[in-house]
Simulated assay, not measured.
Amino acid sequence: MDWLPALIAGLGLPAAATAVGLGWRARSGRLRETAGAVGAETEAAALDLGPDALGSAATLVQFSTVCCSRCPGTARQLAGVAADYEGVRHVEVDLTHRADLADRFHVLQTPTTLILDADGRQSARIGGVPRLDAVHDHLDRLTTRRTRVAS
């Protein structure tokens, strides 16, 4: 084997893999605001979440699986965030036996979190473990509150 292609492969492939990994890590947990389609079925209806399961101001919907090691910790964090706000609820949806929901909501990793507004429409999406400061900022805007409920 010629030494120059071997050197390029030996140094280039790890560098490329590192760059891809750093890019993936930077995107994971980032909140992306979304606009729900007007007139379409709400995300709450597609998930069969009735009015009693939804928060009056917002709902944090966490998609999890049995094999997900980060999902229990994320569920505890999101439940704590929901407790900080009046009218915000946390709902966990297990996708282990619900591939139809994973397809419908384009879930490629768990945990994935949707933030639904008071009408049950998606207003934000987070792939991976959420960055809590971004979740708090988004909920502050959704609930039109400047301060959170003191614990």
Score class of each variant (00 low, 15 high):
D140I: 06
P51Q: 09
G50P: 12
L95T: 09
L13S: 11
Y85N: 10
H90T: 00
D84H: 13
P72W: 04
D94C: 07
D103N: 06
D2M: 09
D133F: 01
D94A: 09
A75S: 14
G87T: 09
R131C: 01
A79W: 00
T42Y: 10
D2Q: 13
R30P: 03
R76T: 15
A6Y: 08
A26L: 15
A118N: 10
P72C: 08
T96K: 08
L108P: 00
W3R: 08
L54G: 06
E92I: 02
R25K: 14
G39S: 04
R104N: 04
Q109T: 15
E86Y: 03
H90A: 06
Q122K: 07
P51Y: 00
R148W: 02
D52K: 08
A53N: 12
A79G: 10
D137E: 15
S28G: 05
L78S: 02
A44W: 10
L116P: 04
S151I: 07
L101D: 14
F105E: 05
D94E: 05
F105P: 03
V149L: 15
D94M: 06
R27L: 15
E86I: 03
D119V: 03
A75P: 01
L101V: 11
I8T: 07
H90Q: 06
L22R: 14
R104S: 08
D133P: 01
G23I: 05
L101T: 11
V135N: 02
L11E: 02
E33R: 13
E86K: 02
G55N: 10
L4S: 02
L108F: 11
A35R: 15
A134K: 07
R30D: 08
L49A: 10
H97V: 05
T147W: 10
V20Q: 12
V91T: 03
L78F: 01
G128A: 05
A134Q: 15
H136L: 10
A83C: 03
T144I: 03
E86W: 00
I115E: 06
R148L: 13
V38Y: 01
L4D: 02
L101G: 13
A35K: 13
G12T: 05
L114A: 04
T65Y: 00
L60W: 09
A102P: 11
A17C: 08
A118P: 03
A134D: 12
A83H: 14
A58C: 08
H136A: 09
R89Q: 13
